[in-house]
Amino acid sequence: MANIFPKWSNFVPIKIILGIGLVVTAVVAGITYYGTPKYMRVGYQPIQPVPFDHNIHVEQLGMDCRYCHTYVDRSEHSNVPSTNTCMNCHSQVLTDSQALAPVRESAESGEPIPWVRIHKTPDFVYFNHSVHVNRGISCVECHGQVNEMQTVYHAKSLSMSFCLDCHRHPEKSIRPVDEVYNLNWEASSPKEQEEMGKRFVHDWKINPPLSCSGCHR
């Protein structure tokens, strides 16, 4: 009796299994790498209506974050400054700059400047800025080195695991309350950070919520 199946068919099951294995691995690897905020959001650097340069204002002029983001330490929401705040100085500084034309128009008309929002938690996440900055969590922990950014971009993933990493180990990120707005501050060593952090967590009775309702409502 002649062979029904040719000889090469012996290898078909192995090849199929191997092929499926490869495809599944590639898809899983692809989604893991590309499907999370670490890829989807980090690096988002929209073109703003006014090319505001944090580096000049913070590093060169030495302005405090709270001159503009005034309510960050007393509100859940860290405000984008009103046009009035810009005009405190720019009514006299660079008064004929083309880049600042939208600011002057806004000051005259009362229409807001359409800043493009970069960092945004989902609407079912209730993040509170004031509790974080008033308990030694610096701006830099979530927003990166904004003081050095000429154009602001999304520096950290702000995914749920990002939040939870810190909520589980606050001692790694906590710092003296006076240094919260000093984005260049760093503990002298990781060991020092750990010891100091543990002390703060204990002394200030830091107990970051890990339950769903801590952030979701």
């Binding site: 590309y34 670490k38 890829y39 989807m40 690096g43 988002y44 650097q45 929209p46 073109i47 971009y153």
Partner: peptide, 14 residues
């Protein structure tokens, strides 16, 4: 096409 993580882009995230 997709590049690597952390590349700067200006379009709103998908």
């Amino acid at each position: 096409i997709f590049g690597i993580r952390g590349t700067k882009f200006t379009e709103p995230p998908l």
